[in-house]
């Protein structure tokens, strides 16, 4: 089943210096349980594409399907609830709510929906991500890598259908970065989740099941597979 799909998506920004086609007719699809990379240089539109997939922004044209649902049809608050229940996010920076501690940050998506945590699963994640001692800490006390790990824990805890990660290793050193991607990959297979990673790093992309290359708002024909 196609968990993510876009059909001819366009995104046009109007700037004082003219129109910018961030996305120019992008049609992709991602199967259930895949670990996918979207790779492109800076300004290629990859982050914009991720935003479309996550419902964080509206396309100027075209349709985006998540779990078979046309998310363009949903109203703002409905889309928010949809995201809450189906999509997990990991960003390059500013991942955590500054006023909440680590535990509360991890629990946030669940609590927003009034759902309780899966205790056993939570313990598992915490141990795997080595966050047990940090549960009471505030985000500003953590290093970049630790913050990313918390973000991943949060994304995993809610067990969403899709996890979207935008340059999750961008600010990290290579060792931590590898940790992060490895974790994502193992959870993808373990929990049968679909994970989409946006990156400009070729090596990371090689670790995924499936690579989508994007340049100047267009997907390059002939998707490479590794």
């Amino acid at each position: 089943m196609k968990v993510l799909e876009t059909r001819n998506v366009r995104k046009i920004y109007h700037t004082p210096s003219g129109e910018v086609h961030a996305l120019d007719g992008v049609s992709i699809s991602v199967e259930d349980g895949q670990f996918v990379a979207i790779i492109g240089s800076s300004g290629s539109g990859k982050t914009t594409l991720l935003n479309m997939l996550g419902g964080l922004d509206n396309p100027t044209d075209g349709v985006v399907f998540v779990r078979g649902e046309d998310i363009g049809r949903l109203k703002v608050d409905e889309l928010t609830v949809f995201r809450r229940r189906n999509i997990g996010f990991v960003f390059q920076n500013y991942n955590l709510v500054p006023v909440l501690n680590v535990y509360e940050n991890i629990m946030l998506p669940l609590q927003l929906d009034g759902r309780g945590p899966d205790e056993r699963f939570f313990e598992q994640i915490i141990d795997t991500l080595k966050l047990r001692e940090k549960l009471d800490s505030m985000p500003h006390m953590l290093s970049g890598g630790q913050q990313q790990r918390v973000a991943i824990a949060r994304a995993l805890s809610a067990k969403p259908a899709v996890i979207l990660a935008d340059e999750p290793t961008g600010n990290l050193d290579s060792v931590t970065g590898m940790e992060v991607v490895g974790l994502l990959k193992s959870s993808a297979s373990l929990l049968h989740q679909t994970i989409v990673v946006v990156t400009h790093n070729e090596e990371i992309a090689q670790m995924t099941d499936h690579i989508i290359r994007i340049e100047d708002g267009k997907v390059r024909g002939g998707k490479d597979e590794e």
């Binding site: 928010t80 229940r85 996010f89 991942n95 946030l108 998506p109 949060r154």
Partner: peptide, 8 residues
């Protein structure tokens, strides 16, 4: 960020 995570 809160909106992204699902706060209406």
């Amino acid at each position: 960020l809160l909106k992204t995570l699902g706060t209406t």
